[in-house]
Structures are given as structure tokens and as C-alpha cells.
Simulated scan of single mutants.
Amino acid sequence: MDDLTAFQRDMLFVIAGHEKPHGLKIKNMLENYYEDEVNHGRLYPNLDDLVDEGLINKGEKDKRTNWYTLSAQGIEVLNHRRNWEDQFVEQHF
């Protein structure tokens, strides 16, 4: 997880929160969070990198649309991140 960008990490969280989201759904969720446009040239290469790293799975919904899910390794990476964050956040709440 330490070699992921914050954008890639946020993509993992978005994918985790939805059942087989497609690229446009992920894009829209990230744009809502960042309050800024996420262009295709940033989104899809990062999705491909996460697939190549084995953190997400990619499937074909139709000829133009792919869906994404977390892999077992992606779930493990997010759980590790959440545990790491919790050690700091829990001290203040």
C-alpha cells in the first residue's frame, strides 16, 4: 500500500463501497469527493495499474464497459490501511 498514490488508494475505497462499479461510476464518485474533474487519461491508466498490481479484478460488462472489484489482496491492503489509520484516529475520539 505504501507505493500507491492517494488517488489509487481512494479508487480502492470507492470500488470497495460498490458492487462491480464501472469506470464512469468510479469517476463520478471520485469527482464528488475531490470536487474536481477526473479525466479519463488519469482514471483508466490508474485502474489498469491497480489490475496489474493484483489489487483489483477487471471484468467485461459489455463491449464498451468494464466492471471492477477488489481482489483478496486489495481487501487485505485496505484492511491494513484502516488498521494503521485507526491507531491514530482512535486516540482523538
Results as ranks from 00 to 15, higher is better:
4 L>K: 04
61 K>S: 00
6 A>N: 02
4 L>I: 01
54 G>T: 08
21 P>V: 14
68 Y>W: 08
29 M>C: 14
3 D>V: 03
58 K>S: 12
82 R>I: 14
2 D>C: 00
18 H>M: 15
37 E>A: 05
89 V>I: 09
31 E>C: 10
77 V>T: 09
11 M>G: 04
32 N>K: 15
5 T>R: 02
37 E>S: 08
80 H>R: 05
13 F>I: 11
7 F>Q: 00
93 F>N: 13
33 Y>I: 14
36 D>R: 13
35 E>A: 15
78 L>V: 07
2 D>S: 04
32 N>E: 15
77 V>L: 10
13 F>A: 06
60 E>Y: 12
25 K>T: 13
74 G>W: 08
74 G>R: 02
2 D>G: 01
73 Q>C: 00
43 L>N: 03
40 H>A: 12
73 Q>E: 09
80 H>E: 14
42 R>M: 04
12 L>A: 04
3 D>G: 01
47 L>P: 04
45 P>E: 00
15 I>Y: 06
92 H>M: 12
63 K>D: 12
19 E>R: 10
5 T>Y: 01
28 N>S: 13
63 K>Q: 11
17 G>L: 05
76 E>A: 15
45 P>K: 01
75 I>R: 13
82 R>W: 09
85 E>P: 00
21 P>R: 10
10 D>K: 11
86 D>F: 09
89 V>D: 01
91 Q>V: 04
68 Y>N: 05
11 M>L: 13
92 H>Y: 11
55 L>F: 08
46 N>C: 00
85 E>A: 12
88 F>R: 08
28 N>A: 11
93 F>G: 13
34 Y>R: 07
42 R>D: 03
78 L>H: 07
86 D>S: 12
62 D>E: 09
32 N>I: 15
